[in-house]
């Protein structure tokens, strides 16, 4: 009987410990980021896409620098150009010596219209060092799924133009390709710049 009586309280203690661990695990964070800390929530950066010169480009080739990845398409009327400009502006605002440590990756999810040439022209408009990437739809779907996002196409109008729905977030990976931050679209240039500077200092320092 004594054993039977002791068991519920022991199980209850175990349950409390488990719940507390789960709660604490959700609260741990090293820095106060402006963006959302996604360390451990998402897998490391991995892909094999085509760059704007038509060559295959793998995620590993960018290792050693902070990667800032954004999904979009070149015909995008609003979100993409403003996000690209804000990101580029944020990087330009970083201390000069740290700017080279950050690489912007623009992944077009509209491979039908965004040929490597068109992609190169588009990213070149925002800066020389931005990597424009795309792939076939299957590869892109796999990559989007890996980062818990999706994209979709609307019906084309009479001119063959169509809208593409895509993630509005920017994914930040550190020099080893680990997922670190998710930058929501309402973050300002200053806030993004601050986060990227902190991250570069952390990885190089």
């Amino acid at each position: 009987m004594t054993v039977r009586n002791a068991t519920p309280s022991r199980s209850r203690r175990l349950l409390t410990t488990l719940l507390l661990t789960a709660l604490l695990a959700g609260c741990s964070s090293g820095h106060d980021w402006n963006g959302k800390d996604i360390s451990g929530l998402m897998p490391e950066l991995a892909f094999e896409l085509t760059d704007s010169s038509g060559e295959t480009y793998r995620a590993e080739e960018g290792e050693g620098s902070i990667r800032v990845m954004f999904f979009g398409f070149t015909n995008c009327p609003d979100i993409c150009p403003t996000t690209m400009a804000r990101l580029k502006g944020a990087i330009n605002q970083m201390p000069d010596s740290l700017q080279d440590e950050v690489t912007m990756l623009f992944v077009s999810v509209d491979p039908k219209r965004d040929t490597p040439d068109k992609l190169g022209e588009y990213v070149g408009f925002f800066g020389d060092d931005i990597k424009g990437l795309t792939g076939d739809e299957k590869t892109l779907r796999k990559l989007a799924k890996r980062y818990r996002t999706t994209f979709g196409y609307n019906e084309p109008d009479e001119n063959g133009d169509y809208d593409v729905s895509h993630s509005s977030a920017v994914y930040v990976f550190d020099d080893e390709g680990r997922a670190r931050l998710l930058l929501r679209s309402q973050l300002s240039r200053d806030e993004i710049s601050e986060d990227l500077t902190t991250l570069v200092r952390e990885t190089t320092g």
Partner: peptide
């Protein structure tokens, strides 16, 4: 719940 905004919705 802005995560659906961040990750894109399945349809508009």
């Amino acid at each position: 719940y802005d995560v659906y905004e961040v990750c894109g919705r399945a349809w508009p």
